[in-house]
Each structure stands twice: as structure tokens, then as C-alpha cells.
Amino acid sequence: RELEKFANEFKVRRIKLGYTQTNVGEALAAVHGSEFSQTTICRFENLQLSFKNACKLKAILSKWLEEAE
């Protein structure tokens, strides 16, 4: 439930900031050390990743959002 809420909020905030899914994937290299594909970001936003992978990505995306805003 919390993950679903974060995924929805993330998408809204990403769009408000003017980032595409591809931009986010590339920008994550600075935060995490490796890029993520547009497909991975899309699957996260649509809750199509495994729970374990989504939880890992949530932590990375939270950190990125803090820096982007």
C-alpha cells in the first residue's frame, strides 16, 4: 500500500519537475552509480516489478527526488 502510494506520488512529482522516465534513469547514475532503463522506471510507476525490487528502487528514487527538488 505504501509502495503504491509512493509510486503514484513519484510519477506526479517527476512530471512536475519536467523529467521523463529516461531522464530519471540516467540521473540515477549520479545517486546510485548505475543507470536504470526507462522500462524499469515505467514498471516501477505501474507497480510491475517484484515487491523486493520495487522496495530497493523506492529507496533509490526517494533519494533522487530529494536531490531533484
Rank of each mutant, 00 (worst) to 15 (best):
R1N: 08
E2W: 06
E2D: 12
E2Q: 06
E2A: 08
L3V: 07
L3C: 00
L3H: 05
E4W: 08
K5A: 13
F6Y: 02
N8C: 07
N8H: 14
N8I: 14
N8E: 11
E9K: 09
E9Y: 04
E9R: 05
F10P: 01
K11V: 04
K11F: 00
K11S: 05
V12Q: 15
V12R: 12
V12N: 15
R13Q: 10
R13H: 03
R13D: 02
R14K: 05
I15M: 14
I15F: 07
I15C: 09
K16W: 02
G18E: 00
G18D: 06
Y19H: 08
Y19A: 08
Y19R: 04
T20Q: 01
T20G: 05
Q21N: 03
Q21R: 09
Q21W: 05
Q21V: 09
T22G: 13
T22D: 11
T22H: 14
T22Y: 08
V24A: 04
V24M: 02
G25R: 02
G25M: 07
G25P: 03
A27D: 10
A27L: 09
L28D: 11
L28Y: 04
L28T: 10
A29V: 01
A30S: 11
A30N: 10
V31P: 01
H32Y: 15
G33I: 00
S34H: 14
E35M: 11
E35T: 10
E35S: 13
E35Q: 13
E35H: 10
F36S: 00
S37A: 05
S37D: 15
S37Y: 06
T39L: 10
T40W: 05
I41Y: 00
C42N: 14
C42G: 13
R43H: 10
R43T: 02
R43K: 14
R43A: 15
E45D: 00
E45A: 08
E45C: 03
N46D: 12
N46Q: 10
N46H: 06
N46W: 02
L47H: 15
L47V: 01
Q48I: 03
L49C: 10
S50D: 15
S50N: 14
K52H: 14
C55A: 10
K56H: 09
L57N: 04
L57H: 10
L57G: 06
L57D: 04
L57V: 14
L57E: 08
K58S: 05
K58T: 07
A59E: 15
I60N: 08
I60L: 11
I60Q: 06
I60Y: 08
L61K: 06
L61S: 02
L61T: 03
L61V: 04
S62D: 13
K63A: 14
K63S: 12
K63Q: 11
W64L: 02
W64A: 07
W64G: 06
L65S: 05
L65R: 03
E66N: 08
E66Y: 09
E66R: 10
E66F: 10
E67N: 12
A68G: 04
A68D: 03
A68S: 06
A68Y: 05
E69R: 04
